[in-house]
């Protein structure tokens, strides 16, 4: 691998250190992400996923271990945080947390405006980012943010981050609360950004269908440690691992596991619905 864009080594983090409530959220985590990769971080609630991704744009600074993002060493006290946050865009799980302007267009423009870009460039970027996430610039720019549905708010939050044109996009539960089509469209757009614009994508998700559709690589966490790192096929084919670490399966994989329990011979690595249908046809035509 050439120089990874995200290079995390031996990272540990303890909340409320030295108190009775001390909690080790990250325990000696090492992780490299290559430029242009699309990686999912999965794990049960409390496994340390959120703590990990908050290190990526300096919301949490390393207590021990190193975090180097595109050559910037976040462990250094003098690191240029502004420059770091321009390179790493973070979209939170609750879109309400990052919308604060009255109108949609102003909200998306906030970041580029603060960067001191000329007005024309700000406008161009807002237009680009809104259309990219599936919000019509003409129709939506003057909408008040309070009158948006949950799914629309999420798109606005994502557009606001994309307008900064980061090199690494970090998403916490990118499609929670979105309807099936919006989810599919957003995943396709993220995929497009990843494939065509070479944007590095790191996302946390509970939705295994989403992980199956989007990720090249899956990083499984439990109790603050990495327990597995592999392709979606390797991860979803491993029923024991998923059960042991309380990770759900895509529905289609659940059907395959059930068939296997009934004594049918199936390949559980076939995690897409179309592949699962083929597995069933194989049984029937045998």
């Amino acid at each position: 691998m050439t120089q990874p864009i995200v290079d995390i080594r031996n990272l540990s983090h303890i909340y409320m250190q030295g108190t009775p409530l001390e909690h080790r959220a990250l325990d000696d985590v090492t992780l490299q992400v290559a430029e242009g990769e699309c990686m999912a971080v999965i794990g049960h609630t409390g496994s340390g996923k959120s703590t990990l991704i908050q290190h990526l744009n300096g919301l949490i600074r390393p207590q021990s271990g190193t975090v180097i993002i595109n050559g910037l060493d976040v462990s250094q006290p003098k690191v240029d945080i502004k420059s770091l946050r321009r390179q790493v865009g973070l979209v939170f799980q609750n879109p309400e947390d990052q919308l604060f302007e009255k109108l949609v267009g102003d909200d998306v423009a906030y970041g580029p405006f603060k960067m001191g870009l000329p007005l024309e460039e700000v406008r161009r970027r807002v237009h680009w980012a809104m259309e990219l996430v599936g919000l019509s610039f003409q129709e939506m720019k003057d909408r008040p943010t309070f009158a948006l549905s949950g799914g629309q708010k999420r798109k606005v939050a994502l557009a606001g981050v994309l307008a900064l044109q980061p090199k690494v996009l970090v998403l916490d539960e990118p499609t929670a609360g979105l309807d099936p089509l919006s989810r599919k469209e957003l995943l396709e757009r993220i995929r497009h950004l990843n494939r065509e614009e070479n944007l590095t994508v790191i996302f946390v998700s509970h939705n295994m269908e989403e992980v199956a559709q989007l990720a090249d690589r899956v990083y499984v966490m439990a109790n603050g440690k990495a327990v597995c790192d592999g392709s979606p096929r390797q991860i979803f084919g491993n029923e024991e691992l998923l059960r042991q670490h309380h990770i759900g399966t895509p529905e289609s994989v659940d059907i395959l596991y059930r068939l296997r329990t009934e004594g049918y011979s199936i390949n559980p690595e076939s995690y897409l619905p179309e592949e699962a249908a083929c597995e069933i046809l194989k049984i029937l035509k045998r």
Binding site: P180, L181, P250, E251, D254, I255, R258, A276, A277, L281
Partner: peptide, 29 residues
């Protein structure tokens, strides 16, 4: 802009290749 459960989608896919398979299913089991 809506979807069906994976169980329904898989049942419909199997049915299209294998007509004896009931396409009208909604639960994994």
């Amino acid at each position: 802009h809506l979807d069906v459960p994976d169980a329904s989608r898989i049942a419909a896919l199997v049915h299209s290749e294998y007509p004896a398979f009931n396409p009208n299913l909604i639960h994994n089991e």
